[in-house]
């Protein structure tokens, strides 16, 4: 009956614990047929914004399925969270050994605990045509919402444009990146996209809505769902190496004067670093180029050479 539907919720991976409740990674399955798209939430315990976005996607897809808007012959799997264990103890990485599950892919069924978790998840998700992961960066700060992908030779920046987010960023993988989900998904010929919004440990409603809309837009354009949405942006594709890093020349209290997405000019004051003892301004960080603020450091304390901003060189609004 239209408007009423029982969503299929399946256990993607389970692991018993000595004293805690069993860890159960749940997957929400929408539609039936080819493995069209898999959407994955936090693998790290502080990715609260990413959890929120996935939960909102589950809500939206429930409505779409109830209204028969999932294309026939297509299945969408949403895993709202992998690492609820770390979330519940306030740790970014795995509580017991501090390992990062997003550095464990494709995993190993005979390996360490987190390698087994990665393997269990990867076996379930590796055959989807499109893989979308909500994740976060090691540096603390805000990004302009964007789609990020590894340059593996299989990456498809044109397809990433279809999310309609302002930017698509392509990163040359370092050795350590070869253990990420994005890299390994691409190795299985899944078109893999990592989506970054401007928050991680806090919820930002505006960018969360933007992310939900971007995923629904992408799924519509790929023929997986039927959904009317705004066309979004025609994305600007940038290589990570082309971003201008703006480091702090000194340590102190960080007082930002600009926001991510702002169009700044050469020489413009971007931030002040305040002497933590005397309150005077030790340094005014100025823009080394015209451009758009792509990343902004957001912690109140900053060390010397910490990256305060990343600018998209010579790009204007």
């Amino acid at each position: 009956m239209k408007g009423e539907i029982d969503v299929i919720i399946k256990d993607i991976y389970t692991m018993k614990a000595p004293f805690r409740e069993e860890m159960i990674v749940k997957g929400y399955s929408f539609g039936k047929g080819d493995k069209a798209a898999c959407i994955l939430g936090p693998v790290r315990g502080n990715e609260v914004q990413q959890l929120y976005i996935c939960s909102q996607l589950v809500r939206a897809l429930k409505e779409l399925e109830a209204n028969s808007c999932i294309s026939s012959g297509k299945e969408i799997l949403v895993i709202p969270v992998i690492n609820n264990y770390s979330m519940n103890v306030g740790k970014r990485f795995w509580g017991e050994d501090n390992s990062d599950i997003n550095r464990m892919f494709p995993g190993n069924k005979d390996g360490d605990t987190t390698a087994r978790i990665a393997d269990g998840i990867f076996e379930e998700i590796k055959d989807y045509s499109y893989g979308i992961q909500f994740t976060s960066f090691y540096m603390s700060g805000e990004f302009v919402p964007h789609v990020r992908m590894m340059e593996t030779g299989f990456q498809n920046a044109s397809l990433a444009n279809l999310f309609g987010l302002p930017y698509v960023l392509v990163r040359k993988p370092m050795p350590i990146d070869t253990k990420t989900l994005n890299y390994n998904w691409q190795g299985e010929m899944t078109a893999a996209f990592s989506i970054y919004t401007n928050q991680t440990a806090q919820i930002d409603e505006v960018s969360a809505r933007q992310a939900v809309a971007a995923v629904l837009r992408f799924l519509t354009r790929m023929g997986v769902i039927r959904y009317e949405s705004h066309s979004g942006y025609i994305s600007h594709v940038i290589a990570e190496g082309d971003l201008s890093n703006v480091p702090a020349a000194t340590g102190g209290i960080f007082r930002s004067l600009v926001k991510v997405g702002e169009d700044v000019r050469y020489g413009m004051a971007l931030a002040e670093i305040v002497d933590p003892y005397e309150g005077s301004v030790k340094q005014v960080i100025t823009a080394p180029t015209d451009g758009i603020v792509f990343f902004s450091y957001t912690e109140p304390l900053i060390g010397q050479y910490d990256i305060a901003y990343q600018l998209i060189h010579r790009l204007h609004e």
């Binding site: 340590g251 933590p276 304390l301 060390g303």
Partner: peptide, 10 residues
């Protein structure tokens, strides 16, 4: 030798 945020260097 690099300056940390508050009164110390690494």
């Amino acid at each position: 030798e690099i300056e940390l945020a508050v009164g110390e260097k690494i």
